[in-house]
Design a binder for these strands. Structure first.
Lengths: 176, 176
DNA sequence: CCAACCATGTAAGCTGTTACATGATTGA
DNA sequence: TCAATCATGTAACAGCTTACATGGTTGG
């Protein structure tokens, strides 16, 4: 099965702590993770799909109250594989938000060495893509852009450079 | 009718210069605008929808060759309204790429005063959203984040700050 | 008692993705 | 002649958005 960005967000949240569907919804409503969803119309179906796929289990508490969602062993394996995969250039170019979500969930996916590996491959991928953008801008295609077009690309380059600087900053946090 | 990000990209491209469907496809394949589309399966249907809506007209050349797509007066009006709308916080938070696309197409939408207005409202919206993120991070919610989660939000903040700096840089380009 | 929040969904519609399909033209 | 590129689509499928629908609980 194919897991969407919202799917990974849900898996990561229940992995951190079992929650009710409503609690999950609240996270998207009240935190910057809201970028990955809007309303119940997307969350509940996505959650059900993960349950059907055997990655999440919905279990009622003996003490009553609403049922909580737990990550299954299979779900845990899937998360681990996702979290530990090296960052690719394509990911960085087309869905960097998802890459950052991956980083946010990297806590407890191993020791700090895993985090440093992630940050290194992130740095590489972003640097590579930044060079591509700069090459485009200084190349023949870029020279024929309008002033506004050129500035828009320039904006992208600056954004990716900020990512690179962040990666260096984050690495220092993990004492390297 | 509702225009999608891809729709606006197509409108902006034919506005700059009439093109064949294939030429439009090539733009997405070979430039950073590729972020707004993938393959013919999305472009041709989107183009047809704009034609049906009367925003684009497909006209065959008398000299033969492939038919070109032109922006209609109605399409021009729609673009102008889109281009000149002030930048909102929601746009910045959820689809900043689309905002930058808007900027890229702002050439020929008026004089430099329009561009400066755009940049000012962009700066305001981004600054506001950045403050929201910082407030989240220093607030009770943010304090309970994991180290990774905190760093991920920090990454977002740095990205938006880069946008603000870019806006100042762009303003200087338009002599203000 | 009434508003706000807890809690969970369904249904219609639209869009995009992936994969397939076709045929003309052109340069090596 | 054969591969690449021009040129334009269709069809199945999955996913998200918007809007609607329902009922329980709790604090002021």
């Amino acid at each position: 099965m194919n897991i969407t960005a919202l799917g990974y967000a849900l898996l990561g949240l229940v992995r951190a702590r079992p929650r009710t569907g409503y609690a999950l919804r609240k996270v998207f409503e009240t935190t910057p993770m809201g970028a990955f969803s809007s309303s119940p119309g997307s969350i509940y179906p996505a959650l059900k799909k993960l349950v059907n796929a055997g990655l999440i289990e919905k279990r009622s508490k003996a003490t009553g109250g609403s049922a909580l969602h737990y990550l299954t062993p299979r779900g845990g394996d899937m998360m681990m594989a996702w979290l530990r995969a090296p960052v690719t250039i394509d990911e960085v170019a087309s869905s960097i938000d998802l890459v950052l979500l991956r980083f946010a969930f990297l806590e407890d996916a191993g020791d700090d060495a895993i985090t440093r590996q992630f940050l290194s491959s992130f740095e590489d991928a972003v640097a590579h893509h930044t060079r591509d953008l700069e090459a485009y801008l200084t190349g023949p295609e870029g020279q024929s852009l309008s002033r506004h077009g050129r500035l828009a690309v320039e904006n992208g380059i600056r954004g990716f450079k900020a990512h690179i600087q962040w990666a260096a900053f984050a690495k220092r946090e993990f004492c390297l």
